[in-house]
Design a protein around this nucleic acid. Structure first.
Lengths: 121, 121
DNA sequence: TCTGTTGTCAACCCATCGGTTGAACAAGGT
DNA sequence: ACCTTGTTCAACCGATGGGTTGACAACAGA
């Protein structure tokens, strides 16, 4: 799980981290500030922040002894690009190719099983 | 991690599973079919499929002894809704409030250090 | 300089994840 | 009734994830 896209998805798979991100859209926050609503230790929150940071979702600038956390919204684009790309493709298939697929399944031939690799990056 | 949104994000945090989803946008596939490009066991792929299914990303209809896997693209909306909501919020803040923030920083007064709390759910 | 605040690092615990192998099951084809 | 094909279940393994506690670093203010 080295690529950024994976890290971003993984980061947002946690409800606490999603909530943090949501709150960070309103304003920057210090770690303490950010930790307040959750009933976990400050260290746990610090870990969450580290995950978000490694995903590129937030940055921390050290300002005196407090490190305000700042949201980097551009990373969202990484996800939306991925999602939109495949969603559009899927939708196209469901609408225009509906009848065609039905026919293809009808003509399904196990011997020519074609794993369908395509680009599949 | 019980909510669907978390499950969807977690499911897509794995490159292999993302690749499967990508390929499923082109056409439905059987498990064998789907497993072909990867050099992991068939059982591993079956597990991945289970994860995708529990996230609501795919459905399997038993047809004869093979279980064709079908992509459910609507779940994508769940993510895009979440992402777009907060991205728009973040962007609004970055653009409209840019100057305001700059001025606030300028007038920065240590005694009124204002952690910027706002509503902070 | 001593103290309090803010945050991180380190070690540990337990649950989950992604992978394996081996066995089982279910539905055709012959 | 077989055997083959397609797929899943079960048990296990090492790595990772989210949580804890305890110690420590860095700076502000007295």
């Amino acid at each position: 799980m080295t690529d950024q896209l994976s890290r971003v998805f993984a980061a947002l798979a946690d409800p606490t981290r999603r909530d943090m991100v949501a709150r960070l859209t309103e304003a920057d926050h210090t770690v303490n500030d950010l930790a307040a609503p959750y009933d976990v230790s400050l260290q746990a929150v610090s870990k969450h922040l580290k995950v978000l940071e490694e995903a590129g979702l937030v940055t921390r600038t050290k300002e005196a002894q407090r490190r305000p956390v700042h949201l980097e919204a551009e990373v969202f684009d990484l996800m939306t690009r991925w999602i939109e790309r495949y969603r559009r493709q899927a939708e196209a298939r469901y609408t225009a190719l509906d009848a065609v697929l039905a026919r293809m399944q009808d003509a399904d031939d196990p011997s020519t099983a074609h794993p369908q690799e395509g680009t599949a990056s």
